[in-house]
């Protein structure tokens, strides 16, 4: 939600609109301020707060315009994760890397906004990335045939679909892997995964029928929302609860198996590992 607000605020500020904030006494405004929202909506911070060093529980909202911003964001994230939440670090690093890559590649040049929060009580990390770019329908229409926002949202979480040129996996730079991988991470940790674009949204339910990952989201327990108020761009949010590095390795192995099930070569391919 915070990433969405930052993207939305930044969009309107760039259009020359002035944003006024009301009810700034509301509970949670301090938190919003600490996460850096007011910086992006060009509003004065309504309350005096003591800014905490973010290390430990959150990564404040960060504007990602180019790959250099993204690289800095990832670099800033490392010490925080490694120091405090090494249990989660691999999964969170992987998720944030893929999500920020993915959103930026499909934003059509618009900035993306990312943030993360660790919740001690529930022992999970929530990640959000949002942009006010071209949206999934326009982005995917360049590569595959999609009918509408709802179809785009569903297609985007299939493996290998969202590459940047026509036909699956055919882009040299884009594997079309990020969203599918993140859906699987949420699935494995029985957490939410949601994606919004245009007037449609997909949400993976926390409880799934099977521990096996599905290449098609239709086979997941999920909710699809249509005819929502239009969000010009894309938003992805997920919660992660992966208990250990070893567990993440196992999870990755399962994701990759799902990913390649249909592409397993008919004969053995020799790969030189030393």
């Amino acid at each position: 939600m915070l990433s969405m607000l930052a993207a939305w605020g930044d969009y309107w500020v760039r259009q020359g609109v002035k944003i006024n904030c009301k009810n700034t006494d509301a509970k949670g405004v301090d938190y919003v301020a600490r996460m850096g929202l007011f910086k992006y909506i060009s509003a004065t911070n309504p309350r005096e707060i003591t800014e905490h060093e973010p290390s430990g529980s959150f990564v404040p909202i960060t504007k990602l315009v180019n790959s250099s911003d993204r690289a800095k964001f990832m670099a800033n994230l490392m010490p925080i994760l490694n120091k405090n939440h090494s249990r989660y670090s691999d999964a969170v690093k992987y998720s944030l890397s893929e999500l920020t890559n993915n959103v930026m590649e499909h934003a059509g040049g618009a900035p993306a906004f990312a943030c993360a929060q660790y919740y001690k009580q529930s022992d999970k990390v929530s990640i959000g990335v949002a942009d006010c770019g071209i949206g999934l329908y326009t982005s995917l229409s360049n590569t595959i045939s999609v009918v509408d926002d709802c179809d785009s949202v569903m297609q985007s979480v299939k493996p290998g679909i969202s590459g940047a040129v026509k036909s699956v996996y055919s882009s040299s730079d884009n594997a079309g892997a990020g969203l599918f991988y993140n859906k699987c991470i949420a699935h494995a940790s029985r957490q939410y995964f949601a994606i919004i674009s245009g007037s449609a949204a997909f949400r993976l339910r926390r409880k799934q029928n099977s521990i096996d990952f599905n290449a098609s989201p239709v086979n997941d327990r999920h909710d699809v929302y249509q005819n929502l108020p239009n969000w010009k761009g894309t938003v992805v949010g997920l919660d992660i609860k992966v208990a250990s590095g070893r567990e993440f390795n196992n999870l990755s192995k399962r994701v990759l198996e799902t990913y390649t099930r249909q592409y397993r070569p008919k004969k053995k391919v020799n790969i030189n590992f030393e």
Binding site: G160, S167, V168, Y169, S170, A175, N249, S252, K253, L256, Y259, T260, Y263, R264, P265, V269, I271, N272, F273, E274
Partner: peptide
Amino acid sequence: ITFKSCNTLVKSIIRTVIYYSLEY
């Protein structure tokens, strides 16, 4: 190409990418 000193995860990802890239 020789891939040297890869851990299990890196190996799995390399295999996956090679498999589908050969397919396409």
